[in-house]
């Protein structure tokens, strides 16, 4: 606060390296640093699961006068996305062959203190994969077709003039389902140097490991980062049923039918008596 603005922050190292925080006493440097933690890093999915909400809070140590911005990114486990385009054939709306995007995050939330465009430039954000427009969705450079599950000629990627349109569609559809979200005012400073953000997981968000990144931006560059993980796990009956259905599917099917038959039989018995 009293010190004149420090030298311009050194950009790439802080960006590439995770920049581990000094654990103990705060080391006074010229570069602002960030620290963040989650209220809860284990989400348990049970039969009453209706999504989850967790709070991320953190502190910014800013020795200089230059304003800083905080950007939070949460990425869910990567899952392939299959997308079809509706095409009109003889007056009917039909699906095209599906295009598979490999490695799109199943969940993506970006929250920041200001609109991203005011925080950093296009190139920086694109390199970091921060923001809905910059989500890294892997797609091979050339169209190739493979045999998938015995189905021939599934188009894995169709990079071309309409590739961007397909990509945007993935993001738009995921956004509509509440799985991708961008909130340019989602990170709020509750006190100078102290911020909080809320992460809402809809029940549709899959189980697995979620990675959070809290970036500190100054003068258009990322200068510090804090990484955490969130585990979303099935527990109890939910876990047992899911495992049963996927690891012993035939037995599971048989049990389902027997249960149904028994329910029907019991109902008919009960109704005969009354």
């Amino acid at each position: 606060m009293m010190v004149p603005p420090g030298p311009p922050p050194m950009d790439p190292p802080a960006l590439v390296a995770p920049a581990p925080e000094p654990p103990g006493p705060v080391v006074v440097t010229q570069t602002p640093t960030i620290s963040a933690a989650l209220t809860n890093s284990e989400i348990e999915v049970d039969s009453s699961y209706a999504g989850a909400s967790l709070v991320l809070y953190g502190a910014v140590f800013n020795p200089g006068d230059d304003p800083v911005d905080v950007v939070l990114v949460v990425r869910g486990p990567e899952r392939p996305v299959r997308l079809v385009r509706k095409v009109r054939v003889a007056g009917l709306w039909l699906n095209s062959r599906p295009v598979v995007f490999e490695g799109a995050p199943a969940f993506y939330v970006m929250a920041s203190t200001r609109p991203l465009s005011e925080i950093a430039g296009f190139g920086v954000l694109r390199r970091m994969g921060v923001g809905l427009d910059h989500i890294q969705i892997d797609a091979p450079d050339e169209a190739r077709t493979v045999n998938l599950y015995g189905v021939r000629d599934v188009v894995i990627s169709r990079l071309g003039e309409d590739y961007l349109e397909w990509r945007r569609a993935v993001i738009r559809l995921k956004e509509r389902d509440g799985l991708y979200r961008a909130d340019p005012s989602g990170v709020r400073f509750v006190d100078p140097g102290l911020f909080r953000a809320e992460i809402v997981l809809p029940p549709e968000a899959p189980t697995g490991e979620y990675r959070t990144e809290v970036w500190l931006f100054q003068n258009g560059q990322a200068i510090s980062v804090r990484r955490n993980t969130i585990q979303v796990r099935r527990v109890g009956v939910e876990r047992w049923l899911h495992n049963f259905a996927f690891f012993q599917p035939w037995l599971y099917g048989l049990v389902s039918v027997l249960l149904a038959g028994f329910t029907g039989w019991a109902a008919s018995r009960w109704f005969r008596r009354t």
């Binding site: 259905a245 035939w250 099917g253």
Partner: peptide, 29 residues
């Protein structure tokens, strides 16, 4: 069909079908 769908596609949700069937058997009577 149920056994085949469960075995081949893992798409039978036993909680969903149980909820439906409890209402269903009463309604059917």
């Amino acid at each position: 069909t149920t056994v085949l769908q469960a075995g081949r596609n893992q798409t039978v949700d036993i909680v969903l079908s149980t909820l439906l069937m409890v209402g269903g058997v009463l309604g059917a009577q």
